[in-house]
Design a protein around this nucleic acid. Structure first.
Lengths: 190, 190
DNA sequence: GAGATCATGTAATATGTTACATGATTTT
DNA sequence: AAAATCATGTAACATATTACATGATCTC
């Protein structure tokens, strides 16, 4: 009954703690709720649920529907809930997240400034879009989930995103200015 | 001769563009230079170099040493350099980085506030340490690599880290305050 | 003499995405 | 009639870490 340390099965347990869901539901839920810092593909979700069921951490109930296809609804068992709580207590390992933008920028001297500028500019657009989503989602949550005990925690994760995107926009502006300077220096030298 | 889209082989090409290196060197170099946004393990590096050599993108020269073990020095070929440049031009795909801290915090209502506080506090310490490293590294680079054409780009990646960590420290402080509030509310209710 | 560092590499394992396969219903 | 959505699942492939295996020299 050894359950691996991976966070994916624990993410599944966490999501099922909100309400019983099918694999399909989970995929949608991830995109809507934790999509700004997490992702799961069907190839992880379906086999993952199966393994969790085999370990007795979740329970499967097949819901038959006329017309629509059957849904396999999974819900947390007492043991599953306990396992989730245990995992939540384990300290988060701070490992470096790989950042392809920075990797390309680190070797940026090999290509023209315009190439680097494009990378930074599209990152800037990304964070501008993200900021709008964070603001809208926070507003919506405050209204629709006003009494949910999870609300404060959900807002914390949104606030993380907000701080992050604001900082990144500032960095993008600074970096674009620096790239302009590099370019004008290059021209002067010619 | 199909080369995969993965960024690891391209990271290797980039590092070898700085100077010829052995697999061992590369590991050290990653930790020192791009360690705050990238990581590579030996299990990726050695087989990776082998594949790059087979594809003609790098060249291997064995350096025999008295006493010390032999070193396999790899250097970029013209084709490898070209491949690196091509890759640098490809737009960066903005996919969500998984964040385990946020995942745990999202489900934070299941555990006590002190558990959540611990997670945030250790993240705070992480960024305090990181900030010191960024500052020290920037200072050192400005001195030692003053004439390197890469300098500006290296400083950009460090500046990214600085902005990021500053923002995260702010978020940590806000979040710790919010957790304190949640706790005092919980006590009042009893 | 014990442990760290130099140095290379493979094997086992873990983790993850994408493509494929299927098929009904609902929307345009 | 076509396309999107609902729904489940597997197989192939890609990517990455960790443990193992080896052995010398250098430092305490």
């Amino acid at each position: 009954m050894k359950m691996e340390g991976g966070s994916t099965p624990n993410a599944l347990l966490g999501l099922l703690s909100l309400r019983p869901m099918s694999g399909y539901d989970i995929r949608q839920m991830v995109a809507q709720s934790i999509g700004h810092f997490w992702s799961e593909s069907y190839g992880q979700i379906y086999p993952g649920l199966k393994r969790l069921a085999a370990a007795g951490l979740v329970e499967k109930k097949t819901e038959r529907n006329k017309g629509k296809p059957d849904r396999n609804l999974y819900s947390l068992t007492a043991e599953g809930r306990e396992r989730l709580h245990e995992w939540l207590k384990i300290p988060v390992s701070d490992e470096v997240a790989r950042n392809e933008l920075l990797l390309k920028l680190f070797f940026g001297a090999h290509v023209s400034t315009s190439v680097n500028r494009d990378h930074v500019a599209s990152n800037m657009e990304f964070h501008q879009r993200a900021l709008k989503v964070y603001t809208a989602t926070a507003k919506q949550l405050r209204k629709e989930e006003a009494n949910d005990p999870n609300l404060s925690y959900w807002l914390m994760t949104l606030n993380y995103g907000r701080h992050y995107s604001v900082a990144m926009l500032k960095w993008c502006r600074e970096t674009l200015a620096e790239l302009d300077e590099i370019e004008s220096k290059g021209k002067r030298r010619r």
